[in-house]
């Protein structure tokens, strides 16, 4: 959708990848949290990051839209490129990057404002709508994409915090897609939801794949197997294995991956 803004400098081989990360290290003060991770993330694909708690999968996800900048003691090194452009270049404004790389968090965190304002906030601050009618369109389109429109269309002026947990998380997804991002990062989006809400969100992820590149961190291996095409397994800050989801779950190359997916570690 943002084809016009795509730089022409990318070579043919790299063009298939939305994100390319090479040799990424992350330090929290003296703690080496991510060790030399290299991952390539395809466009219009769901990539799942799995691994035991504290393995660094969320930390790595947060490198992709520079959310780690907000943590004082966190230091990121290595090369991460979005469409061939270095996102850690000093010339890059993280605000612009985050408009392109949206994020959905573990716990639903709607703003304590109305449902409408929650979705309209991003388009407003980025100036995506020139009038009220256009903003209404964006809000409706985003809520439809998040499969929430039918449930909330009659109470757009009610607070977003009054929705149920699953609805709140879909509201957060609607808020994230409202700014027309190219990539959507999801940090354990279903861990606070019940199975029905989880199923709804997973269905949504599958639909969003038509338009976006999605990266999802999850604790649930079943979920990774259900929604993703590519899977990366992290263990103790290292990327152990990365490949097609079907291969990882049926025919893992590394013994640690096998132990994890069969439930012996983690």
């Amino acid at each position: 959708m943002n084809d016009m803004t795509m730089p022409e400098q990318t070579t043919k081989a790299e063009a298939d990848y939305k994100f390319t990360a090479k040799g990424v290290d992350v330090f929290y003060a003296d703690n080496h949290a991510i060790k030399d991770v290299s991952v390539d993330i395809n466009d219009k694909t769901v990539t799942a990051f799995i691994g035991p708690s504290g393995c660094g999968k969320s930390t790595f996800l947060r490198c992709l839209n520079r959310m780690n900048d907000t943590i004082d003691i966190c230091r990121v090194t290595g090369d991460i490129r979005l469409d061939g452009e270095d996102i850690n270049d000093p010339k890059v404004d993280p605000v612009q990057l985050r408009a392109k790389v949206g994020m959905v968090f573990q716990k639903p965190n709607p703003f304590p404002k109305s449902i409408y304002d929650n979705v309209a906030y991003g388009p407003r601050i980025h100036g995506l709508a020139s009038g009220k009618a256009e903003l209404d369109d964006i809000v409706e389109k985003s809520l439809r994409r998040a499969a929430l429109w039918g449930e909330v269309k009659d109470r757009l002026d009610k607070p977003g915090t009054g929705l149920s947990g699953g609805q709140q998380q879909r509201l957060c997804i609607a808020r994230a897609v409202a700014t027309e991002p190219e990539v959507l990062l999801m940090d354990e989006p279903c861990s606070a939801l019940d199975p029905i809400a989880t199923a709804q969100v997973e269905e949504l992820i599958d639909e969003l794949r038509q338009n976006y590149s999605l990266v999802i961190v999850t604790h649930s291996m079943q979920q990774a197997a259900r929604v993703s095409q590519k899977t990366a397994f992290f263990h103790l800050g290292e990327l152990v294995e990365f490949g097609e989801t079907a291969d990882i779950f049926t025919n893992p190359e590394d013994s640690r991956t096998e132990s994890y997916i069969t439930g012996r570690i983690g």
Binding site: T70, F105, I125, A176
Partner: peptide, 23 residues
């Protein structure tokens, strides 16, 4: 103020100042 509100605002591309003054 819970940090999740700050993350939410930063996540949709608000600047730090917008995050502080809007949320």
């Amino acid at each position: 103020v819970p940090p999740s509100i700050r993350e939410a605002a930063l996540g949709v591309g608000a600047s730090r100042m917008q995050t502080v003054f809007h949320h």
